[in-house]
Nucleic acid binder design. Structure first.
Lengths: 248, 248
DNA sequence: ACCTATAATGACGAATCGTCATTATAGGTA
DNA sequence: TACCTATAATGACGATTCGTCATTATAGGT
């Protein structure tokens, strides 16, 4: 009746191994350097087995993207627990997003291509559903901060935007800023990093000032918030980045 | 001494023909559908000749991106001449960017991949330099509006950002908003279009309010500005989009 | 009529994706 | 133990793709 059924657990193990290998390949050779043939060579399975886990290359990319969103969700969670005003917590989330884009630049970019019809249509239903779920879980964290700020009156919201609209504005601002900055990641270095952070801070504060989210930029030293974040919340990630910097 | 020298003019003609064919292929089959082999088949030249115009596929993509930036520059130029306040003119530019992203969604996305090292390193020096030049010419238009607004005192700029920083904030906001919205382009339709415009308007106004760029969102009906733009400045483009809509 | 430097061609090798006929294996059965 | 079978794993293969380069064609000069 059931000759040679595979353990569900080893299935997860393999998927993990495949994703690990794929991430390593991307780190070493860029997204273009990721090839199904290379992946098969890096892994103790045959091509057929790999294709039983991911229906096609796009499905693999979406799988990587989803893993990244999981990591990002964890970062957002920690950022949201920052002890400070709601505005500081929002800034913490933006900072977490910046860290993520630095730690996994390719996965950050994958979000875009993952949305393109070329990928969406081809990839498996499972990964597509997981993607939507992850996306939802990312936004709920932000929205809870927003609703709290609206309730507390910290976010005056003069234009009467809905919480979802405010969340979208935050997301767009962070995404646009980081995406445009990331082109300069080549010329990385401690100098470029600080400039990125300043630019991100400037942009997000402009938007939050527009929402009249208290305390305004002029009434608080948000640079100090970043300093606290670097030490109190994201010390491991900052350390990792510094280590990567050293390695060059 | 000079047997069979090719006319410089026909060279341009051919490049135009190649870019046209490439754009058509992309429109029909997406970026992934663009293949050097297919392009060669669509065109009365051999593969070798094509490769004498573009050193590799990446170079072709950068060429397409540059053409797009030229078009975008022309749109910006017209937007900048809108008769209204400086804030309205900035909004006009954002609107132009949205129109561009709708008319040429693939070229809009190409800006991102064009920045990636995979493309930059491979493509020809000529196209890379042209790209930088186009980028600069795009920003100068925006910066001139910003400096004027700063001089006139219309943009209070409470955080004392440099004009370049303000330009970057605008660029990021527009880019992020449109990029995130574009994922929904599939479910296009007049309904989705209007929602996109409202979202763009909300985001840009948030940022401009943060700059205290007069008149504030609460003190002016910027929806009416969009209406004027649709009729007075971008009637041809809006018509084209409507026609595309009908075709579905 | 002939020569030559330039332009154009497309067959080819290498690399990639994804398939599927073939082989191997774990568990059940006599 | 020997055998059977449904599932899992394999990797050779066809189809595409990119980019090259030996070969062919051509326009101008002699």
């Amino acid at each position: 009746m059931s000759p040679r059924q595979i353990d569900q657990n080893t299935l997860f193990e393999r998927e993990k191994e495949l994703l690990d290998a794929a991430m390593l390949l991307i780190k070493q050779q860029g997204v273009e350097g990721l090839t199904m043939d290379k992946l098969v060579k890096q892994v103790p399975f045959s091509k057929g087995t790999v294709y039983s886990h991911f229906t096609c290359k796009e499905d693999l990319l979406l799988g990587l993207c989803n893993r990244g969103m999981g990591i990002l969700g964890a970062l957002f969670m920690r950022a949201g627990k920052f002890e400070g005003t709601t505005r500081e917590r929002i800034i913490a989330i933006h900072f977490a997003y910046l860290l993520y884009s630095r730690l996994y630049p390719m996965m950050f970019m994958l979000v875009i291509s993952a949305k393109s019809p070329g990928v969406t249509e081809k990839s498996s239903t499972r990964n597509r559903e997981m993607h939507l779920q992850l996306e939802a879980s990312l936004t709920t964290g932000i929205i809870s901060i927003i609703t709290q700020a609206l309730a507390d009156g910290e976010c005056n919201n003069p234009n009467n935007l809905a919480p979802e609209q405010i969340a979208f504005a935050n997301w767009s601002s962070a995404f646009g800023t980081i995406a445009l900055l990331s082109k300069d990641f080549e010329q990385c270095g401690i100098r470029a990093q600080m400039q990125s952070e300043q630019a991100l801070l400037a942009n997000v504060n402009l938007m939050l000032d527009g929402l009249q989210w208290q305390p305004l930029f002029s009434a608080f030293d948000y640079t100090q918030t970043l300093d606290r974040l670097r030490i109190e919340v994201f010390a491991p990630e900052v350390g990792l980045l510094d280590a990567q910097e050293q390695a060059l």
